[in-house]
Amino acid sequence: MNPSVRTIFNQNFTEEKYADFLVDLNTGLHKPVEFRVAETPVFLTDDFRDKLIQAGQDIIDVITASNFKDLSEKAIPEKWRVANENDHSHFIALDFGVCKDDAGNIVPKLIEMQGFPSLYGFQVQLGENYRHAFNVPGNQTIFFNDLTKSSYIDLLKETIIGPYQPDEVVLMDVNAPHQKTAVDFYITEKYIGTPVVSLAGLLQEGDQLFYKTESGEKKRIRRIYNRLIFDEIENDPDIFNKVVDIRQPLDVEWITHPNWFYRISKYTMPFLRGRYVPKTQFVHKLATMPDDLQNYVLKPLFSFAGQGVIIDIMDGDIEKLPDPENWILQEKVDYVPVVESPDGGVKVEIRLLYLWPDGHEKPTLAINLARLSRGKMIGVRYNADFDWVGGTVAFMHK
């Protein structure tokens, strides 16, 4: 991490500035941010930034290869397979832990990946609030590929809205206004004009979908900016008797199509190679059991937000799995506490966020999300009792 910018930031940090930062961040929002936002952004060195970019590109090369759909076909659970899949994911999120290699160099290591959108709207506002509250230098940016706020939002519009009008594209989640990430939904609406709609708000006539505007007008939906993860409705087997069954063939475009959530996921990791990728194997394909299981974690393929992960594998854990084909065994990634806080080091995870509009040959690395942790795992739920942890963003030299 960038030591000079960090030193200046820490010297000038006060709890009062942080409190004012949170007030400003929440001002004007649909409702206050429901997850913890960290006291500090991350400041990347040029060297680590370049390693991150290369690590991401190595994975993008696999995702964009001509055989990727064949490779990932078995990733999609049949009960959640949705009709009319397109050719590529419009969003790609790659999570990297900040670690050390065998030579002691600070390097990124892949943790997880998603063919699914993240906080593409919120991160822009978060970066602006950090810059204003803590006087982040003007030569620091949260964007990649020479993007600015203006050109980034143009790319976001091109990806999500495409050739349609903003009110013909809806951001949809199962119970959208009450999601913890709803802050991102409404900031996105502010930036690009896409209304926020819950799954139950979809109206079907034939193979067409509609929604009701705030004025009560029935409006045709041309595209769905999908934020629904099927895990969230897994426990309601009758859900599609009560709402539109979105798995059926419908005359609507998906941004991004739900099948890509599974194609670009933990399922993909055993097919990846390289110095920034931990060794990962499907459990049911293990030829021999590693002798050093303490250096591995067990991850279920079909879960999100770290749920179900077995960090400390005990004797018999693997043999007891009722569905080994739905698990991976992944080499442990040891995070290095590289961010200096007033009372010790903090671990970091950085999510590279790509946008891939229709008509573009390849995805564009656009912006990032970062998370700070002192707990055993990265994520808000594992760090509830600490400070200098939570959601943040990484700045780097322009």
Rank of each mutant, 00 (worst) to 15 (best):
T188W: 03
Y267C: 06
G274H: 09
A370Y: 04
P166V: 01
K285V: 01
Y18H: 14
N10C: 10
V196P: 06
T7P: 00
N383T: 08
L352M: 15
V169K: 11
K212P: 01
P41A: 09
I92G: 01
F9D: 01
F395N: 00
Y296V: 03
D317S: 08
D95F: 06
R6D: 08
N135E: 11
S151F: 01
L209I: 08
Q330V: 09
K69D: 15
K398W: 02
F122R: 00
I8P: 01
Y211E: 04
G201I: 07
I311L: 15
K74Q: 13
K157F: 12
V37A: 11
P249S: 11
E214D: 14
D245R: 04
Q165N: 13
K31P: 03
G115W: 07
N105Q: 12
D61V: 00
E85I: 07
N12F: 05
G201S: 06
Y211I: 12
H284I: 07
N135P: 03
Y267V: 05
H257G: 06
K17E: 10
F395C: 01
P32E: 09
E15T: 10
A182H: 01
L298M: 12
A83H: 14
F91H: 10
P137D: 14
I378A: 12
H257T: 03
T64I: 07
V82Y: 15
F9E: 00
F144E: 00
E217I: 05
D173F: 07
H30W: 12
F230A: 10
T159P: 11
D315H: 11
E189V: 03
L355P: 04
W260C: 06
D358L: 12
W260L: 10
F386D: 13
N10G: 11
I239K: 07
E39R: 08
L156M: 13
F282S: 11
D102V: 06
T40H: 02
V243G: 06
I367F: 01
A103L: 12
K51A: 02
G138E: 15
E78F: 07
R81E: 09
S66Q: 13
D184I: 09
I63G: 02
T188L: 15
M269A: 05
R273V: 04
D146H: 00
H30S: 09
V169D: 04
L298D: 13
F271I: 06
E340M: 07
E34K: 15
R81Q: 11
L365E: 01
T268N: 03
V389N: 00
K285Y: 07
P32H: 11
V393L: 12
A65H: 10
E34L: 14
R263M: 12
Q330N: 10
I224C: 07
L352Y: 02
Y354L: 13
D167W: 06
V348G: 04
D292N: 15
Q54V: 13
D343P: 02
P237Q: 12
D184C: 10
T40D: 04
Q307W: 03
A38F: 08
S373H: 09
E331W: 02
F302L: 14
K100W: 04
G391H: 14
W80N: 07
T148W: 02
V42T: 05
N84D: 13
R247Y: 09
